[in-house]
Design a protein around this nucleic acid. Structure first.
Length: 492
RNA sequence: GGCGCUAUCGUCUAGGGGACUAGGACGGGGCCCUCUCAAGGCCCAAACACGGGUUCGAAUCCCGUUAGCGCUACCA
């Protein structure tokens, strides 16, 4: 099959594959962009290539430093490290202009004096006639003398590429053969009247200069590709291999955008997601390792990555599955790896200082282990962690209503529980469990009738880890303090 | 409108002519476990867009239809 052959070719023909992620800094790092970066990165890591980063800042009006920083931060958080320094497209203006001039000299391009207003009008007329608008090449028919006269007179002009006859096609790594009849491609502008380059020129010029051999990008660029191939040829450069990744859509099937909710990678970072889970989820949106494999670490993704598993169809972004995936990773990664991701959130929530956590590191790691099983996000962990740190807890009214229904009875049970706990010989699961169970037996009630009121006394909530694990984690002193407080609240 | 891409459960997907009674996962429903909630285990509902070919045989190959999406700038 074609795609497989191409992959092998790039791997074995002696040149190391060079890929790049080339976002324009006009917003935050979008999950779609992150996924494009991921696939480029995976390919480079898998096949021993290089992954480069280029900031496409030629649209000065829309580009911002803040966006550039957000892209760096997003990529760094995800762990998608790039090789070499960052390339800023804007810094290559001179080369872009030189390439445009070369095309002008070789006759591959020509000057066009039509103004935007004129073009606009002709476009509208064509639309009114229900015809497809295509630049009619009128400026290409100007005599050399006329062109010279206008240039000398200082008439503004753009540079247009003269599209030759024929068909332009390529073997796309994900789609196979794609062909465009050249007659459907208009003579596109490559240099604006202010002598700055248009996207297609800048991209090709930079990709050639950077020695890019594999271009992987969103399939919204498919229609740019024939234009770029024409430019490569006119510039006498070797073609890279192209791969067009499917888009990511929202739940309504439309291109993912702000109105679908969080689309910035940073949003998920702050929401308490693990980068590994985000990457795993994104990878599965448009790629499959084959079979039933789903939950993977980054290393496993590199190992399993192959161009054959790339999908052609757009995928819908399902936040529910992302959450599930995060829960899987939360429970799966080593505690030492989880700790530094949770600690800042614990500190921000003012549950403890970093120093306090370092002092009780073993205890803290055990707590994380207890809480992560029933969490889907880091925020979930922080929400459950309060009772283990705070001096005073709040009582959830619903939990109180349900488990302390009869205050007098609850107080009696809690009082007996307090006595039992203060008298337990060894504060271990082996010591605690029989003691509390026999307390229930002696009162002729089920164990749950003891555990649930106790749970509310300890945490203020009706939901928590197992009662013995919790008692162990809190320690006798804190547990008894909580019981005293509960008895006071119950008026006993 | 023109050009291009795409088409398996609601969603992500497995599937490369016979192994398909179409498998897995998320989500939904139920049961088990159980001190609560999760996690875990088991079970249920749920799909090859349509029409023609090719073939002994098609989810799989070809053509068409339909639908969705993308592009159609002196944006990227």
């Amino acid at each position: 099959m074609g795609p497989l052959f191409i992959t092998d070719f790039v791997m074995t023909n002696g040149t190391t594959p060079r890929l790049r992620f080339a976002p324009s800094p006009t917003g935050y790092l979008h999950v779609g962009g992150a996924r494009t970066a991921l696939f480029n990165w995976l390919y480079a890591r898998k096949f021993g290539g290089e992954f480069l980063l280029r900031i496409e800042d030629t649209d000065k009006a829309r580009s911002t430093d803040e966006s550039t920083r957000a892209i760096f931060e997003g990529l760094e958080w995800l762990g998608l490290t790039w090789d070499n320094g960052v390339v800023y497209q804007g810094a290559n203006l001179t080369r872009h202009q030189a390439d445009a001039n070369r095309l002008l000299e070789t006759g591959a391009a020509y000057r066009c004096f039509c103004t935007p207003a004129e073009l606009d009008e002709r476009r509208r007329e064509a639309e009114a006639r229900k015809e497809a608008f295509k630049y009619d090449r009128r400026c290409d028919r100007l005599s050399p003398e006329e062109v010279e006269r206008r240039v000398a007179a200082g008439t503004p002009f753009v540079v247009r590429f003269r599209v030759p006859e024929g068909t332009t096609d390529w073997d796309d790594m994900v789609h196979g053969r794609i062909a465009f009849p050249n007659k459907d491609i208009e003579d596109f502008v490559i240099l604006r009247s202010d002598a700055t380059p248009i996207y297609n020129l800048a991209v090709v010029s930079d990709d050639i200069a950077m020695g890019i051999t594999v271009v992987m990008r969103g399939d919204d660029h498919i229609s740019n590709t024939p234009k770029q191939i024409l430019l490569y040829r006119a510039l006498g450069a070797e073609l890279p291999v192209f791969s067009h990744l499917p888009m990511i859509h929202g739940l309504d099937g439309k291109k993912l955008s702000k109105r679908h909710g969080a689309t910035a990678v940073g949003d998920y970072q702050h929401y308490g997601l693990l980068p590994g889970a985000m990457l795993n989820f994104l990878a599965l949106l448009g790629w499959s390792p084959g079979g039933d494999r789903e939950v993977m670490t980054l290393e496993e993704m590199i190992e399993l990555f192959s161009v054959d598993g790339l999908q052609k169809k757009a995928a819908i972004f399902d936040p529910k599955k992302l959450e599930w995936m995060n829960g899987q990773h939360l429970s799966m990664i080593p505690l030492e790896e989880l700790e530094p991701r949770v600690t800042p959130a614990i500190v921000t929530a003012r549950l403890a200082t970093e120093e306090q956590l370092i002092d009780r590191r073993d205890w803290y790691l055990r707590l994380l282990d207890l809480l992560r099983i029933r969490s889907r996000t880091i925020d979930d962990i922080v929400r459950q962690a309060g009772p283990y740190f705070l001096e005073d807890i709040d009582y959830d009214p619903a939990a109180v209503a349900k488990n302390w229904k009869d205050p007098a009875e609850s107080a009696a049970i809690l009082k007996a529980t307090r006595e039992t706990l203060s008298g337990v010989g060894s504060w271990t699961a082996e010591g605690l469990e029989p003691a509390l169970r026999s307390l229930a037996d002696s009162r002729g009630i089920s164990a749950g009738k003891v555990f649930q009121p106790l749970r509310v006394a300890l945490t203020g909530m009706s939901v928590s880890p197992g009662i013995f694990e919790m008692l162990l984690q809190m320690g006798r002193e804190l547990a008894l303090k909580r019981l005293d407080k509960a008895l006071a609240v119950l008026g006993a």
